[in-house]
Each structure stands twice: as C-alpha cells, then as structure tokens.
Design a protein around this nucleic acid. Structure first.
Lengths: 215, 215
DNA sequence: GCACGTCAGATTGTATACAAGATGTTTGAC
DNA sequence: GTCAAACATCTTGTATACAATCTGACGTGC
C-alpha cells in the first residue's frame, strides 16, 4: 500500500543492509541507486534520510551516506538493552496481562514446542518472536511495546545465529514455561528477572560465537 | 557547525514544536516554511522527513505532514518507560560506575542542593538533568545511554511542570541521596528500585496535574 | 433536497537543472 | 624525486519545473 516510491526504496534498502548486501562503511551512491531503482535522485535521497534516521546509515555532510553496521561492542550493548526492555515488559505484564494474553502465550508456546519436535529452526524462530511480542503487548504500554519491537527487529539477524547452539532451543523452551508461570502468578519481580536472564543469555551466546569466530 | 541547511531547519522546527508553537494535528506547509526559512521546498522536505522519523510529526502520503503531539495516554506511557530505562541504567551502573562517576554524582547533587537553597527552579531542573545523565553514562552501555537521553529530551517540556509541586524539589533531593547511596554500595536491586520509583513519581505528579487541569 | 460526477485549485511527489564543496591528479618548482 | 598548488572531475545540496492526486465546490440529475 505504498504510494511514495521513496518509502518503498527505503524499505528495500533496509532489507538489503540487514541481509548483509553491503559492507560496513560502504558508501550508498545516490546516482547508482537512482539508476538501480529507475528513479531520480530525489526519492533515493529521501530513502537515505530514513536510513540515517534509523541509525542504519551515517551521513557526512557533502560526503555522502555510508552504511553503518553495529560492531561487536554495540551489538552486545543492544542485546543488553533488549534484555532490560523485555524485563520491563515482563514486569508490567505480570500485573496487567489479560486472560486472553495468557491464552495466546500458551498457544505460542505450543507452537514453539511443535517446531522443536520437528527440529524446525526457522519455525521455532518465528514462533519465539511472536511469544515475546505477546509479552510486549501484555505490558499494556504502547510506547514501550513499540520500542521493544524496534529493537527486536534490529537484532533479528544476529539472534538467528545463537539459536543454533546445541540444546539452546530446548533450554529456551524451558525458560518460556518459567516466564509464563511467573506471569500467571502475577509475580512481578520473578517475571522481570526470568525474562532478563532469558534474553541476556542470547547476548552471551552471541558473545561466544564472536569469540570463536575471532580465534 | 551545520553545513546542510536542511539540518538547521529540522532543528529549529523541532524546537518550535517542543515550544508549543504548533497545535496537535496542524499541517506543516512546505511552501510556507520554505518562504519562512528563505529556501526552496527541497531542504524543508528533508527537514520534515527528520521530524517524521523522530515521531514528532506524522506523514500522510499525498496529504502532507502534521505535527503529532503526544496525548495524555502516550505521555504516561513515556514516563513509565523513562522510569524503566532509568531503573535499567541504575541497575547496570550499580556494578559499573567508576569512582570518577560517583564523584560527579556527588558534585551534581551539591549543585542541586544549591539550586534548592536559592529556590531556583530552572537551575535545579538543569542540574537534575545532569545528575541523571551521569547515571546513564554510568551504565557503561552507550546504546542504552543514547536511548535514555533521547527520551529524557522528549519529556523535558512535560517534566518541567511537576517540579513546581510544593516540596517536590526537596523530596527529589532526598531521593537523589538514596540513589547515590545505593550506587556507592553497589546494591544492584536497590539502585534499580529507587530510580524506578524516583522517576515514576514524576509521571504520577504529571497525572495529577492533568487531572486537575481537566476538572 | 440530496447524491453523484466533474472540474478547478492547491499541494505533494518526482525529475531535472544548477551551485558549491570535496577528491584526486597533474604539473611545476625546488 | 618529492612536495605543493592549481585544476578537472565527481558528488552532494539546493532550486526549479513538471506530474500526479487530493480537496472542495459547483452543477446536474433524480
């Protein structure tokens, strides 16, 4: 339902960057992109502005815009913030989530388990994301929910890796059940703590991956 | 040090919106703004894109961009998220803040007290902001720090009001001392809890203001 | 009197033209 | 041979021109 071509271009570029099509620091050439998308420079420039605003790219005046992939440090920081955000969502959801929300969580968990049984990583990944999104929603704080969704989206590409750790899916599943239990019990502190730990583990696994990769 | 005129325009417009120069839903006319800033529509459009990306304005394709001030509900949500973010910063800072950071906190608190003694709201307000920013920095998480700063900035205009509550500055000051004590002791949970409460009070005071205003 | 279609005006979206600054090369002096 | 300065080229930033579409009013038909 996109009417402005600039928006479509921005979306496409964002996907390309997340897909690793560009190297860190690579310049996004307005003319080449205009050519590539068969438009003039104007909509391309508007799309680039969006990338800059999102933090995906950096603009240096009179020099151009350059893709800016997060380095290891920033990634760890983002994972840590994700853990804090999810913890906050859990804290609020513990006292606010509706019966319908709890029901959705249970269903999502069932679908997660099915994915594990079939050893379907992609499916587990998708259902796991939904599980967490239900908790964001459960916080009954639209602003917090939006921010959590944004960061979840930004970390998507990097979170995919760590699920491949042996036994990680099973452990993750067990944690899910713990989370649901805390939410059902309305145990604010436990929900916050368990969710923080659950997400923080992702960051730690990712850290291990980075370390292995560098050695 | 701005070279692009579009950036300067975006900054100015943002200030104008925060200063309440525009009503909610008001359309930002490209031609009028171009005239006003003595430029063509192009840099104005780029500036408007920035406002849209920041969430200050909303764009409806082929219709224009309209300022979008947060309503009471969204404001409460933002205050609540601010409390959670500050709590997270405090949690992390409790185990990471440096001696230098603690020293800065002590100094900021002294300046806060001086402002109270002189009953200088504006001064207290400024020093109070710095106090919190030191804690963001103390989290040793640049990403989290940036997000906290962004939200703090967005809430600036609304936080100003609640400091005028009778006795609020004094109470706030007492809470500051409690925060510093928790950070010095490295008490993670206490730092998180006290900061959450300290910031959440702001939201509640604001809520009272809104209620009084509507009655 | 009401509904619908058409048309004029206004406004956004895109293309293109022009201006200004940055980069890199070449040329000349030492 | 090396360094520096001027110049050519390329790229971004801005202005303007054109295209598309939305709004609102007017008029016509029922």
């Amino acid at each position: 339902m996109e009417i402005r071509r600039a928006d479509k271009i921005a979306e496409t570029l964002e996907q390309h960057v997340f897909a690793g099509k560009y190297r860190d620091g690579e310049r996004l050439d307005e003319l080449k992109l205009a050519d590539q998308f068969c438009v003039s420079r104007t909509p391309v420039r508007e799309a680039l502005q969006v990338l800059v605003a999102t933090g995906i790219a950096e603009q240096i005046p009179r020099r151009g815009v350059f893709v800016r992939l997060p380095g290891p440090v920033e990634l760890m920081e983002m994972f840590e913030m994700m853990a804090e955000l999810e913890s906050s969502c859990g804290r609020l959801a513990a006292s606010r989530i509706t019966e319908a929300g709890l029901q959705q969580l249970a269903e999502a968990n069932i679908r997660c388990q099915e994915a594990i049984n079939q050893n379907d990583h992609a499916q587990y990944y998708a259902e796991n994301e939904k599980f967490h999104q239900i908790i964001y929603r459960g916080s009954a704080n639209g602003y917090l929910e939006k921010q959590a969704l944004r960061l979840q989206s930004k970390l998507r590409a990097y979170r995919k890796m760590q699920l491949r750790f042996r036994g990680r899916m099973g452990q993750s599943m067990a944690e899910h059940r713990e989370i649901v239990a805390a939410l059902e019990a309305g145990d604010v502190e436990k929900a916050a703590a368990v969710l923080r730990r659950h997400v923080a583990v992702q960051g730690e696994k990712f850290h291990q991956l980075m370390a292995n990769f560098n050695s």
